[in-house]
Design a protein around this nucleic acid. Structure first.
Lengths: 169, 169
DNA sequence: CCGAGTTGGTTGACATCTAAATTACCCATA
DNA sequence: TATGGGTAATTTAGATGTCAACCAACTCGG
């Protein structure tokens, strides 16, 4: 622990690191919220849609052959019940369809309709400009640096931090 | 596509930048989701509470004199109606109280109860360790760099990007 | 072929969240 | 003092999101 009369012993330093990490997390969260709230607001006012719907359609746009509900669930990082609801809404609006997957009678294959693809492409183009605008405050070098740090963070969490607590004592 | 007549004109480059920004945004979002889902899950399994409740209590813990509903709303970056609901729940559980703010009869002052403060402090200590654990993959230098980039991003958005679209074109 | 266990998807109960409308109150000013 | 615009909080309707329970269909060992 402490050597001489130092108040800056291992425990104090750990606490201090904890605070730094906490502050960094709060800043990360704030940045994400800033971007996200703007995207949500604009999707609503410009296209009358929502971010989850947009994200689901984005996945389908990348997979012309369609995706299973379970596949959507894992890619969007949400539960199956949630995907069911989102797909219901999009299907009612004629933007996606559920087709049965021949080989497995339990499974469904969700696809964009022609109209759905048209609508998504229109939104995606504008969406990409919004994002570029929001990240334009960073130079190319800064953006690369940020991307690298985030990647380090992501890998560390995926490799070392379980969803449910097990690691910490 | 083309040979001499460069296809890498301003527009092409812009599109490419857009893609880079989009990728960076997806990575930022993924990192936040990773941390957030772990915090949510653990708050639920360890303490039977939720992240929004925890965040609200965290704000109150920093302000022993209490906070107005509107102040909570802006600090948590959520709508007033949302704060009303969260406060209702926490009040039912005896963790916070609403007191009338003497000078302005419209306003309320929300405070942690003694029990609320005790409960929050317990959770906060553990929460801070979770966060430190998740950010431990970054060196001190990397963490500083990340914090700086995020700050640049945040300031750019706050200064230049309105919540509702006005700026673009 | 059969029964146990697994997987794909839906449903229901509940907690968050937003946007918009409502109620009550503050305050400046004529 | 009256009147009108703004502010504090709540309420409402509707979209997301989780979890747990459920059904149907698949798989596989015996």
């Amino acid at each position: 622990m402490s050597a001489d009369t130092r108040p800056i012993d291992a425990e104090t330093r750990a606490t201090s690191d904890d605070h730094h990490a906490l502050r960094l997390w709060l800043r990360l969260y704030a940045c994400t919220s800033l971007v996200e709230s703007r995207v949500r607001r604009r999707l609503q006012s410009r296209f009358g849609t929502t971010l989850p719907r947009f994200d689901l359609m984005a996945q389908l746009d990348r997979s012309p052959q369609g995706l299973r509900m379970s596949e959507l669930s894992s890619r969007l990082m949400v539960t199956g019940g949630n995907v069911t609801g989102l797909t219901d809404n999009l299907e009612d609006e004629g933007l996606v369809v559920r087709e049965s997957d021949g080989t497995d009678r339990r499974a469904l294959r969700v696809k964009l309709t022609r109209e759905g693809r048209r609508v998504f492409r229109t939104m995606a183009a504008e969406h990409e400009r919004w994002i570029a605008e929001m990240f334009a405050g960073l130079s190319a070098r800064e953006a690369r640096s940020l991307a690298e740090r985030l990647n380090t963070l992501k890998q560390h969490i995926l490799d070392n931090v379980p969803l449910d607590e097990r690691g910490t004592e």
